[in-house]
Amino acid sequence: MTVRSSSVRLRAHAGMLLWALLVGLSFPAVGLLGQQLPPLWLTALRFTIAALALLPLYLRQPGWPSARGWLLYLLMGASLGGFFAIMFWAAHRVSSLSMAVLFVSVPLLAYGLGRGFGVERPVPALLGCLLLGAVGALGLAWAEHRSSDQLLQPGMGEALFFLGCLCSALYPVLSKWGLARGWLEQASVPRAFWSLLGGAAITAGLGLLLETPENLLGMSQREWLVVVYLGILSTSATFWLQQHATRLLSPGGIAAYGYLVPFVAMLVMFFRQPEAIGWAWLPGSLLVLLAMGLLLREDLHAHAPLHK
């Protein structure tokens, strides 16, 4: 392992930090969309905008999928398309506290699925970091519970959102699995581009069967701007960043950056409501930051340059 390879891994981690920032900023934006809008068609529109945003980069390094690649891109698109569609639906039906608590499961689910698919090594240190991050994220959810009147009320909405979390965890696992078998392009832009198109096709097809696309015609100018923002920044950029990291990091290590999403959402809330700052937020924040620091240290140490 050369020093250059180590710096490439460090850039992959830096990219996932940016991923967490963009995803964390997208959650408040989703709440600005009307409850009457069809979630499957919103997701298809969001993915189409994101694919168009990546098109200039894709044309510079095009890659045409194989037959197996086409099938895998459809499955990858369906996995994240399912998560985003469920998130749109749940935004007005499930409390943010319940969503935050359930989202904690994604890194651990990715680790377990990665072990099942044979793309995740049995690394006790990584599992320890994931568990520590989960405790910290739950601490942030507890602090949010103290500062609001929200309650944990398990129901069908929460069960559906957990299914969405499972879909989210499956995406990096399928990406790593496809790369290991040579079914997917080595370049990250084509992988992001085709998985976005696959997700748009799957969600639009389901939307034709289950929803009324005419409801999109009633979108306000603000809602269109929100969808464009989500498509360009929160989707095209995050898909590319995640695919860029997939070649180097494990599925569990990638999904672990999801623990920073509630931390970013907390910072946004503090900016908008400074009076909400309190000591209750400190333990969870410190545990999340400690877990991510240990994760970075463990990964860089495991792939440190060898000196003779």
Rank of each mutant, 00 (worst) to 15 (best):
R297H: 12
A143P: 03
L151V: 13
R121T: 15
C129Q: 08
Y259G: 00
D149S: 14
A204S: 14
G252T: 12
A159H: 08
S188C: 04
Q153T: 14
G128L: 15
A200P: 01
V30S: 00
L109W: 08
L138H: 06
F239I: 11
Y257I: 01
T235S: 15
M76L: 10
A304G: 09
L166P: 02
W64Y: 08
T48C: 08
L109D: 03
L71Q: 07
A53G: 08
R68E: 12
G139P: 02
V288D: 03
G24I: 09
L208E: 08
F263Y: 10
L37K: 04
V8M: 07
V8D: 09
K176I: 03
M76F: 07
R68S: 14
L74Y: 06
L206H: 02
V104P: 01
A169S: 14
R93S: 11
A90I: 02
Y171L: 13
G178M: 10
L287G: 02
L57C: 11
Q153N: 10
L249A: 13
V30D: 03
S6D: 06
L57N: 01
Q61N: 09
T43F: 02
T2K: 04
W240N: 12
L206A: 15
G164K: 09
Y229D: 01
P190S: 03
L113K: 02
A100F: 07
F161W: 12
G31L: 12
A200E: 04
L294H: 07
L210Y: 13
L267C: 11
V189P: 00
S168M: 15
F27M: 07
L179V: 12
S168C: 13
A201M: 13
T238D: 04
I254V: 15
W41C: 00
K308L: 14
Y229V: 11
F271Y: 13
V123R: 15
A44Q: 01
L225C: 08
L196G: 06
W183T: 03
G128P: 12
L179I: 13
R191A: 07
L166N: 08
N215G: 10
R68H: 11
M16S: 02
A276I: 11
P213N: 08
L225P: 00
L287D: 02
P28N: 11
G112N: 08
M76Q: 13
M16D: 01
A245V: 11
A256H: 05
L108Y: 13
A100P: 05
G77S: 09
L75T: 00
A276M: 06
E185D: 15
Q61D: 12
L40F: 07
L166Y: 10
R9H: 13
G205I: 04
L296Q: 14
G258T: 12
W281L: 13
A201Y: 01
G178A: 11
F117L: 14
W19R: 00
T43S: 04
R146S: 10
A180W: 09
L37C: 05
L196M: 11
V288S: 07
C167K: 00
Y111G: 00
L286W: 03
K308M: 11
G164L: 10
A100W: 04
S95A: 14
P56L: 10
L131N: 05
V268Y: 12
L241E: 05
W194R: 00
M266N: 01
W19F: 15
A204G: 11
I202G: 00
V226G: 04
A50D: 12
R146W: 07
L72T: 09
Y58A: 04
L75Y: 02
L25R: 02
L33Q: 09
V268E: 12
G77F: 05
W70A: 03
P56D: 10
L166R: 02
F27C: 02
L217I: 06
